[in-house]
């Protein structure tokens, strides 16, 4: 999954889609995941990076990442034409 190219991520946790004018707020871990996606990291790589950085386990992040990615898809922040 890839983030739309022109999505603007700000360190305040503000996310802006210039394509349709939508804006969102994310928490710090959410922001780090969006940045990973922007860099083109795979889901696996993201998961491992989160496990590396945070006090969590594989099962938890797997569930939560699944949910988070579904949300950004629903919010039209992902690129369909890969």
């Amino acid at each position: 999954m890839k983030l739309l190219k022109n999505i603007a991520l700000s360190d305040t946790g503000f996310v802006f889609n210039p394509g349709n004018g939508d804006s969102f707020s994310v928490n710090p871990i959410g922001l780090s995941i969006l940045k990973d996606l922007q860099e083109g990291k795979s889901e696996d790589a993201i998961r491992n990076r989160v496990i590396e950085d945070y006090q969590t386990d594989k099962e938890t992040i797997e569930k939560d990442l699944y949910d988070f990615l579904k949300m950004i898809e629903q919010f039209n922040l992902t690129d369909y034409h890969e």
């Binding site: 700000s10 305040t12 946790g13 503000f14 802006f16 804006s23 707020s25």
Partner: peptide
């Protein structure tokens, strides 16, 4: 937009 961002976040 930056201003909107600041007040929002």
């Amino acid at each position: 937009l930056k201003e909107f961002e600041i007040i929002s976040t």
